[in-house]
Amino acid sequence: MLAGGQSSRMGRPKSGLEWHGSTLLRRTAGIMARVTSGPVVVVRAPGQGLPELPEGVLVADDPREGRGPLQGIAAGLAALSGRAEIAFVASTDMPFLHPAFIRRVLGVLAQSEGTDVALPVARGYKQPLAAGYRVWLAEAAERLVKEDRLRPAFLFEESRVRTLDDAALKQDPVLAALDPDLDSVLNVNTPGDYAAARARPAPEVTVQLFGTVAKGGASGGPHLVRAATVGAAADAVAVVFDRHVTAALNGDQITRDRMTPLAAGDTVFFLSADAGG
């Protein structure tokens, strides 16, 4: 995740912008952590302060400030060297980034041996900051930065790039169903963009309650609610999300973190943490 941009058009750091109870940085990092099996690395400018991050997220310092996104890509991929073979690169300002989008892009890259970059061309634009890269491209990216060739396009010129247009992306039925307009790639660059993003409601998710969690108040469900975080989903159904309760996202990942981000179509199960039997 590239967090080190200048945010000049926004007029303030985008990473700390609030969106439905979370920050853009935390939300995007959390969405990436949900999908990937490896670490999430946030690349920041030297000395840049960051809002709170999910547990386990690594922070890498961009050695040089103001060198553009390719410098950030180089630093992020270098930080993942030896830890992963492929990586999804995102900017910090994508409130609608959907896990299914990341899964789709990385899935294509993982299954294409002769491809170095899986590059979405979504909503009419190339999306280098919502794309999949082979981690070993770090070296080439770093060399290009030293040569002052600072745009991602230069990296693509010497890489094997597979572009994914809207139709190709939406061949994944889950993505097509949950993010039909590919809002995943929408970013917020100006106060107007941000205001528009904030005006959109939190994602619609399904909540089900089990055991004593259901006995405490709301019925078991399923309940359709609007919630951008697990904590907000709990609040929406009057569940006290304390140490006696855990949440399972879509039936697999289990969390106690209220700030775990939710995306459209998610199902949240609230369970008793006292699981013995």
């Binding site: 089900q208 089990f210 055991g211 004593t212 289990i254 199960f269 369970l271 008793s272 699981a275 013995g276």
Partner: peptide, 11 residues
């Protein structure tokens, strides 16, 4: 403990 049944099925 029968409460586990639905919860374990869900996960």
């Amino acid at each position: 403990t029968l409460a586990n049944l639905l919860a374990f099925n869900a996960i």
